[in-house]
């Protein structure tokens, strides 16, 4: 979580991110949310509410919000069978080909900075059709030209079984779509209060963009109200610290 002196600025930004991610889930039947993912979790629950029940949301490692009864392996089995449409991944480093690094910066194995590890990424990135990359820090330290360690590759050579992969990248500055054919990101919209120049300055990889990219729409008041209702309810139960900060 970025270190904001101004909590209201963080709250405002978080509302935009939740709204952007909820839009990316349109048409999905089942989205899974990993542990420690309050923003994607809020977005998924918002999308569920707006879908009038058409979207199923499974939050891992919860008693009440996970449907799984076959243990920690069931998420992966479920994904492998094509029963999960969307999932969220992140990275200590993410590069322009959408390779993600959850292991560390420097030369493996004695990396200079070690992160927790690859989790299920080296599997789910291949199998979940709509993987949304999400990172709350938009800097050249994160968005690098080439990751130091590929926890999971953004694209695969022909012949590799890969129904899934990166769909979009959401950061505090903007929304990118990923073109799997060209293996490149395309800036889709710039969040309110930010500029293309700012995004270029803080991104270590080259990406495609329109001459004048769109401005990300701010969430409508009705959507904001629904978001707050969800954070007061389910999210406060799953992510109490996040909820307390968001609600103030």
């Amino acid at each position: 979580m970025a270190d904001f002196h101004d909590v209201s600025a963080w709250r405002h930004q978080t509302e935009t991110l939740v709204s952007v991610i909820a839009d990316l889930l349109a048409g999905c039947r089942h989205v899974a949310v990993g542990a420690q993912s309050p923003v994607p979790g809020t977005a998924a629950l918002l999308a569920r509410r707006e879908s009038a029940g058409a979207l199923r949301v499974s939050v891992l490692d919860t008693d009440r919000h996970s449907p799984f009864t076959n243990g920690a392996c069931e998420l992966f089995d479920c994904a492998a069978e094509g029963r999960i449409d969307a999932f969220f991944l992140s990275g200590g480093q993410i590069d322009g080909q959408a390779n993600i690094n959850l292991v560390g910066a420097g030369t493996y194995p004695s990396v200079d900075v070690r992160w927790p590890g690859s989790f299920g990424s080296a599997f789910l990135y291949f199998l979940v059709p709509r993987v949304i990359l999400f990172r709350e820090e938009h800097t050249r330290r994160v968005f690098v030209e080439k990751v130091d360690f590929v926890s999971a590759p953004g694209t695969s050579e022909p012949g590799i079984y890969r129904p899934g992969g990166p769909h979009a990248l959401v950061t505090p500055l903007g929304l990118f779509h990923f073109d799997r054919e060209r293996a490149r990101f395309r800036l889709a919209s710039v969040h309110p209060g930010h500029t293309v120049e700012e995004i270029v300055a803080h991104t270590g990889f080259d990406f495609d963009r329109d001459p004048a990219p769109a401005v990300t729409p701010a969430p409508a008041n009705a959507r904001r109200a629904l978001m707050h209702e969800i954070v007061r309810g389910e999210i406060a139960e799953i992510y109490p610290r996040f909820a307390a900060r968001f609600l103030g």
Binding site: A72, C73, F76, V103, P109, D112, F119, G120, S151
Partner: peptide, 18 residues
């Protein structure tokens, strides 16, 4: 890991389960 005092075998979740 930084000091090299343990051997790390990095895996991915479903590989351990499998």
């Amino acid at each position: 890991v930084r000091d090299g005092t343990i051997q790390i075998l990095d895996a991915t979740c479903p590989a351990i389960h499998g």
